[in-house]
Amino acid sequence: MGRHAADRTAYDPEHPRFARRGASGPEHPGTTVLRAMDELSAAHRDMLVELFYRGDTLEAAAAVRGVSVETVKSRLYYALRALRAVLDRHVAADQPRVS
């Protein structure tokens, strides 16, 4: 099990652990990532939360899913790629338009 195996909090944007801070001021990078997580598929979001937020190992994630570590690595790659695409869209939308 991962170092936070007892904490099985699923991603829930309303949960205090995922609360967005500083809503009245400029957006913080963590808030940007949480906003982007809302746009991911459940499978991608769950993979990222399990491995990065809860700190589970690749081996533990593979055992829970009944797949190989290589499959988990592949799914993690695609989840990170999807997150990057969403973040890139957010950054592009926040850039001032030059006429």
Rank of each mutant, 00 (worst) to 15 (best):
residue 19 A to E: 13
residue 19 A to D: 07
residue 19 A to G: 00
residue 19 A to C: 02
residue 20 R to F: 04
residue 20 R to A: 12
residue 21 R to Y: 11
residue 22 G to F: 15
residue 22 G to V: 12
residue 23 A to T: 13
residue 23 A to D: 12
residue 23 A to Q: 12
residue 24 S to G: 06
residue 24 S to T: 10
residue 25 G to W: 13
residue 26 P to C: 09
residue 26 P to E: 10
residue 27 E to H: 08
residue 28 H to K: 15
residue 28 H to V: 15
residue 28 H to I: 14
residue 28 H to C: 15
residue 29 P to I: 11
residue 29 P to D: 08
residue 30 G to T: 07
residue 30 G to K: 09
residue 30 G to A: 13
residue 31 T to P: 03
residue 33 V to F: 07
residue 33 V to R: 07
residue 34 L to E: 11
residue 35 R to Y: 04
residue 35 R to E: 14
residue 37 M to C: 12
residue 37 M to W: 13
residue 39 E to W: 07
residue 39 E to T: 14
residue 39 E to R: 15
residue 39 E to P: 06
residue 41 S to W: 06
residue 41 S to D: 14
residue 42 A to D: 14
residue 42 A to R: 11
residue 44 H to A: 09
residue 44 H to F: 03
residue 44 H to P: 01
residue 45 R to I: 09
residue 45 R to M: 05
residue 47 M to S: 12
residue 48 L to Y: 02
residue 49 V to E: 00
residue 49 V to T: 08
residue 50 E to G: 04
residue 51 L to R: 05
residue 52 F to T: 03
residue 53 Y to A: 07
residue 53 Y to E: 10
residue 54 R to D: 06
residue 54 R to L: 05
residue 54 R to M: 01
residue 56 D to E: 14
residue 56 D to S: 12
residue 56 D to W: 04
residue 57 T to P: 04
residue 57 T to E: 10
residue 57 T to F: 11
residue 60 A to V: 01
residue 60 A to R: 02
residue 60 A to M: 02
residue 61 A to C: 08
residue 62 A to L: 05
residue 62 A to P: 03
residue 63 A to K: 05
residue 63 A to F: 00
residue 63 A to L: 02
residue 64 V to R: 05
residue 65 R to H: 01
residue 65 R to L: 00
residue 65 R to Q: 02
residue 66 G to P: 00
residue 67 V to C: 03
residue 67 V to E: 02
residue 68 S to T: 15
residue 68 S to I: 07
residue 69 V to I: 14
residue 69 V to Y: 07
residue 69 V to D: 12
residue 70 E to A: 13
residue 70 E to W: 07
residue 70 E to I: 06
residue 71 T to G: 00
residue 72 V to Y: 03
residue 72 V to I: 11
residue 73 K to V: 04
residue 73 K to N: 08
residue 74 S to Y: 05
residue 75 R to I: 02
residue 76 L to I: 01
residue 76 L to Y: 06
residue 76 L to T: 05
residue 77 Y to F: 13
residue 78 Y to M: 04
residue 78 Y to T: 07
residue 78 Y to P: 00
residue 78 Y to S: 06
residue 78 Y to C: 01
residue 80 L to C: 11
residue 81 R to L: 10
residue 82 A to F: 04
residue 83 L to E: 02
residue 83 L to T: 00
residue 84 R to W: 03
residue 85 A to M: 10
residue 85 A to G: 12
residue 86 V to G: 02
residue 86 V to H: 03
residue 87 L to F: 12
residue 87 L to Y: 07
residue 87 L to M: 13
residue 87 L to W: 06
residue 87 L to I: 14
residue 88 D to T: 09
residue 88 D to H: 06
residue 89 R to N: 10
residue 89 R to D: 13
residue 89 R to M: 08
residue 91 V to H: 11
residue 91 V to Y: 08
